[in-house]
Each structure stands twice: as C-alpha cells, then as structure tokens.
Design a protein around this nucleic acid. Structure first.
Lengths: 157, 157
DNA sequence: TTGATAAAAGCAATAATATAACATATCAAT
DNA sequence: ATTGATATGTTATATTATTGCTTTTATCAA
C-alpha cells in the first residue's frame, strides 16, 4: 500500500504519467494538456485536493478559469481510473495503482488529511456475501476509513 | 439486513421512534420536536433524502425554513447513530439498526436510489488488517456499494 | 484536401449542498 | 432567581457541482 511511508516522489510521478500515457494511447483516450496537468497536480501534491484547489492552480497557470475545466478533467481521470474521488472530503486524489484493475479502499487521516490507498478486494468479498443474500448486484464500491495516520498518532496523541 | 424486502412500515416507524426516545432519555439527549420530525420523515420515506428535501417538508409544516434547521437536526441524528449520511448521494437515511452499536455498509441502487443497510463488521475486519500494516488506526468507516437492487435488476435489466 | 462528425474546450450563468456568525430562547442545576 | 449549557431563529455567505450553449480541435472517410 502506498500512503504514509516516504518514497521517491519524482519517479512516482513520472512512472504514473507514463503508465497513463500508455494506457490512453492503447485505448484511444485523449490525454489532453488540461487532463495531464490536473493529474500532474494530483500526483505532485500526493493528497486529496478539492476541485476548486485544482482550479486555482489551473487559473494561475493560464490553463482555464471556470469550474467546468477542473470538473471535466477530473471526470475524465476518475472515469478511467487514473484518479479517485474521496466522497468524504469532496476531494480527488491520484490513483496509486495505475493500470491495475482495482477497487480502492482509502485510509483518511482526520488530522492531516493525507490519504492512503489500500486494496479492498477482501472488503469486497466480505460485502458481496451480504449483498448476495439481498440479491443485490454490486457494481462499484466506496470504502473510506477515517482515523489517524502513524505520524499524527505519534505527534498529536 | 433491512432494505429491499417489504415489511410492516407502521410498526417499523413506531418501533424506531420508541427506541430513539428510550435511548435519548437514558443518555440525557434532547429529542426535540424538530429532531423528532426529521427522523420521522426519514423513517416514513425509508430512503435517502437530501437536506433540502427535508427542509422543504419542514417548511411546509411550519417547523423552520432555513438550512440550519435541517442540518442541525441531521447532525444530531447522525452524531448519535439514529441516521446515517450517504456520502455518495449527499443524502441522509434513518438507521435500520437503532440502538445496536454498528458500522453500517450501504447498498445503493443506482436506478431507484433505494438504500439497504447491511452490517460491515466483516468488512471492517478485512480492512483493519490492511490498516494495521500501515499503522493506521481506523476510527470510523464508510462503506457504500452502488449497484442494482432486485427490483430494478428484474425490471430494467 | 476537404467536408463531416464527434469530442473537447471556452464561457456565462446558476444550481445544490453546507456552514458561519450572532442574537434569542429554553431548560436544568444550583 | 442566577447561571451555564444547549437549542433555536435568522441572515448571510461559503463551498461544491452542473447546465446550456458556442467555438475549437482532432479524426477519419471520401
């Protein structure tokens, strides 16, 4: 799980961008400058950003100034699995498992708002059993846990 | 799991209200008219309602006309576990397991927006394992699955 | 190369969701 | 009765998200 531990951020960004480029080319998706820049911003920050935070940065860079600019780029990224929306925060974060087909589960620190992306495959398994008995067919899942990350647990205990 | 199957709605409402009354009395919580009415509305509808849907009804009944009226009542209900917020829908629903200490998991039908509340204890178990390896301490969880309920699966397949 | 067409971007307006701030009222415990 | 804590009334505003319409750009077939 990528999340609270440190890592080489430069390669993390460039690897992710490369993976997305490849996937877009393969799928005929258009990885336009605005979409690319929004993903870069999310990757650089490496935390959940609100649409208007992103819009502010786009504005500052002359890449657009109206809400739809940000929302369209984010829609594209989310729809194609390159980013996720954290419902709890009304915010967006770059995907940590580019390319892999996955259902994410998020660990959200309530103190510093950092977000780690865990795999929710076991979670999905557990829930689908309950769903089956209700004859409910699960298509997508949102799993968000709120708590304290290691740093904040130590610092602000 | 309460949810998509039919049931006796009258007793379902009155039982829930009675349980909440009891719990409030026991805990020294004030179950005021506005709070009670909001819970009643949620119980009657038996589905997720937006804060402004609720506000409209309160307005029509002369119980208050400004957003804070609805949000305050909802905050009270959610904080004390009598209702839940469905993050995915920005909407609120009465709890189906009044009194029991539980972490809910929701099954949301994308077609009719009905919501069933399942238990997420096994889900929590699955996730806490992943969280442990990241030294993350989970305090609360949101589990929301989107899919098709039995009725809509049959009807709109 | 051009013309058709589908996707994306530009732009203005507004909708939907939620909170802040502050004054007033209620109620329970001293 | 006085205090302190909680709840309500009210105005205003903040935050998040979408609609609708026009113009531009990319794609692709003739």
């Amino acid at each position: 799980m990528i999340g609270f531990e440190t890592h080489n951020h430069e390669t993390c960004i460039s690897d992710a961008l490369k993976a997305v480029e490849t996937k877009c080319k393969a799928s005929g998706l258009k990885f336009t400058p605005a979409r690319r820049r929004v993903l870069e911003i999310l990757l650089e920050e490496h935390r959940a950003l609100g649409a208007y935070d992103i819009l502010d940065r786009l504005r500052a860079e002359g890449l657009g100034s109206q809400p739809p600019v940000a929302y369209r780029a984010l829609d594209f990224l989310v729809k194609n699995g390159f980013a996720h929306k954290i419902e709890r925060l009304n915010a967006f974060i770059a995907c940590s498992h580019m390319g892999e087909d996955h259902t994410p589960a998020f660990l959200i620190c309530r103190s510093c708002d950092n977000v780690a992306e865990a795999q929710s495959a076991p979670v999905r398994g557990a829930l689908s059993k309950a769903a089956q008995s209700a004859e409910f067919r699960i298509e997508r899942m949102v799993v968000e846990a709120v708590g304290l990350c290691p740093k904040c647990e130590d610092g602000a205990a």
